[in-house]
């Protein structure tokens, strides 16, 4: 067998999986998004861009197109909440990762194990635990009342704050682990050198540690931000269905609303948002690399 055919047979399984599980389903979704929705569910094989216009416009009583901010609000909220989650995860996760990396050799694996431990429990159960914590007369409220901090709280549950809390909780390990990996690679002598050259701890953090951990920070940010965009569970359980995110919206179109075309077009939009963020990041990284060489 020649080298070329060897290579072909070698990568064939990978390509098969990719095509079957990614390219074809994506193609189907894209196809459906371009079809007319059927009021009785599913879609009619008639080309139409209606499902895309539906994201921005609405038909009023006289069948005129009318701007409709309802969905833009959900899209905006999704991006904002995901960005906030990623930023807060970074602010919390970086010190945690740094702390773990400074521990003794025997302690490190234990702490890392603890960070990944929640992954062994079903996501639903973990998010539901927050319902118990945040609900009226839940753990947090009764705790606060016990110590006399509050008299009566409106509700800690079913708002953006509750969703944010749940999302940070769910995704923070994905921030801690890559940052930990990049801090581990950091030469401790560089930190000593910075201190030796009169830099305070804070200056060392901003001038040496963070720039050298950029790769870990960026990948952690992407690993948190991207799944947050499509999150479904937290809005249902912690947002109480009052505040929707794109994931729920899409789920509803394929389920309750039976508007497959609209669901598919929202899916394509979500994919585009992710791709734009990844593209911007890749371009920045390329520019940085150019600067370094």
């Amino acid at each position: 067998m020649s080298k070329l055919t060897m290579r072909f047979w070698g990568v064939l399984p990978a390509y098969t999986v990719m095509i079957l599980l990614m390219i074809i389903p994506l193609g189907i979704i894209f196809y459906v998004s371009l079809m007319t929705s059927d009021p009785y569910g599913g879609y009619k094989p008639l080309f139409s861009l209606e499902s895309y216009t539906q994201i921005l416009y609405n038909y009023d009583w006289d069948n005129n197109l009318e701007l409709n901010f309802q969905y833009l609000l959900i899209i905006g909220r999704t991006i904002l909440l995901s960005l906030s989650t990623a930023i807060l995860c970074l602010l919390i996760g970086f010190p945690v990762a740094y702390y773990i990396s400074r521990q003794r050799k025997e302690v490190k694996p234990v702490l890392l194990y603890l960070v990944t431990l929640p992954f062994w429990v079903s996501m639903v159960v973990r998010v539901y635990a927050w319902v118990l914590i945040l609900s009226n007369d839940g753990v947090l409220e009764s705790g606060l009342r016990l110590f006399g901090f509050v008299d009566d709280i409106d509700s800690l549950l079913y708002n953006n704050g509750a969703m944010l809390t749940g999302m940070i909780y769910s995704y923070i390990p994905l921030m801690i682990l890559p940052i930990y990996a990049s801090i581990e690679k950091l030469d401790p002598r560089l930190l000593e050198a910075a201190g030796d050259l009169y830099s305070t701890r804070i200056q060392t953090l901003y001038r040496v540690i963070i720039p050298l951990c950029k790769a870990g920070i960026v990948s952690g940010f992407i690993l948190v931000f991207v799944p947050c965009l499509g999150t479904v569970l937290e809005p249902i359980l912690l947002g109480g269905g009052k505040t929707m995110m794109m994931g729920n919206l899409i789920q509803n179109q394929f389920g309750v609303s039976r508007n497959w075309s609209f669901g598919a077009s929202l899916t394509i939009l979500l994919l585009c948002i992710v791709l734009i963020f990844l593209f911007l990041q890749a371009r920045r990284a390329a520019k940085l690399n150019q600067g370094a060489n």
Binding site: D187, L190, A193, D196, L197, Y198, R207, V208
Partner: peptide, 30 residues
């Protein structure tokens, strides 16, 4: 960082993300 003493490290410990000018100027900047 409060001692007027500087060190040349065994493996140099130059900051890899800074060019030579920035490396040499780091202490002065601080």
């Amino acid at each position: 960082n409060k001692r007027r003493v500087n060190t040349v490290f065994q493996n140099y410990a130059l900051f890899p993300h800074m060019n030579l000018e920035e490396n040499i100027g780091f202490g002065l900047e601080m």
